[in-house]
Design a protein around this nucleic acid. Sequence first.
DNA 1: ACCTGAACACCGTTCAAGT
DNA 2: ACCTGAACACCGTTCAAGT
Lengths: 192, 192
Amino acid sequence: MRTALAVIDRDGVAGLTMRKFGAELGVDPMAVYYYLPDKGALFDAVVEAVHDEVGELLVEEGATWQSLVWETFQRTRRVLLRHPHTIPLVGTRPVLSPRMLARADRLIAALVEVGLTAATALNIVACARSYTVGYLLVEAGVPAGPPVGAGVADADVMVAYPSLAAGMAQGYDPDRQFGMGLRALLDGFPAG
Amino acid sequence: MRTALAVIDRDGVAGLTMRKFGAELGVDPMAVYYYLPDKGALFDAVVEAVHDEVGELLVEEGATWQSLVWETFQRTRRVLLRHPHTIPLVGTRPVLSPRMLARADRLIAALVEVGLTAATALNIVACARSYTVGYLLVEAGVPAGPPVGAGVADADVMVAYPSLAAGMAQGYDPDRQFGMGLRALLDGFPAG
DNA sequence: ACCTGAACACCGTTCAAGT
DNA sequence: ACCTGAACACCGTTCAAGT
């Protein structure tokens, strides 16, 4: 699976071919089908490998549910930025493997331990996860299918779309913007 | 483009083939290339058609920035639920057409009119959009590539993952959960 | 048990040719 | 200007066959 992830990082998800994957493993392309039922299983394995890279939080003294959720999804973002081609896969393929479920279970358990109900914890995690994946998709996601055509020149934006231009005037800081949204989501939740 | 969207709604994005698209139009499959440079352009046109369906808000007396953003993304969700196969496309292909930019510009302008700075308006819209797309991706998104394998039976979840099971005990209401997260995002934003 | 290789039914895209 | 059809270089997957 490290091989599959490496191929995706290098060539994109369209570049991960059953044939190429076999070749990369130094094996007949079709040998892969002995271990994996189809290409979807290969994708799911890659998604799981990415989640493994996020790893698990250890709950420190004085942790709050806000700090746990914040740290979890900041880490998630950092990992996804290292594997931008996998973002559509991660957002799109619900992997329900035992390892994945166990990890989710431990996160919910940790949040319950610091005072949340299980139902609230699940709500917050689901929303924060949606926000994170959605944000990464537009921040760093590589378009599905062929590349997108050229956009619009900056000068055009300034004159034709004044409000947009005004909003963008002081630049765009993804780190800061992602953090603002995640912070807002946590601060605004009727949970504490 | 209505034809292309209809094909995607029926057969999924993998089912929208340049060849099938031509056939559906009653024309030689390759005739499409006279009008569109490649398949990416076809995807972008579909994304634009979906955004057109969301339409535009009219700003009523007494509107706040919260009510405008709320209404915008509730509508976006409703439209995406009608075209679930397009969600990965919408989340993934940044269409910067004049029509799209003009619509974004008018939304920002409306938010400035009710008291936000342009920069803040852009931040909020970007975050709310990320949240919405991310949420829909897991709520209704159809996995990229081949279908995902079978998950885990409910009974297994109960015994092996107790915290997860406790959180899910009172059921899952996507409408309510989506609304909670969007509300939290708006309430928590340091903007008012 | 594990791998091979031919074959099937497709793709997106190019390009010379038609009207 | 607009459309056709053959061709190219690929795909994922199946399956009989090898060791």
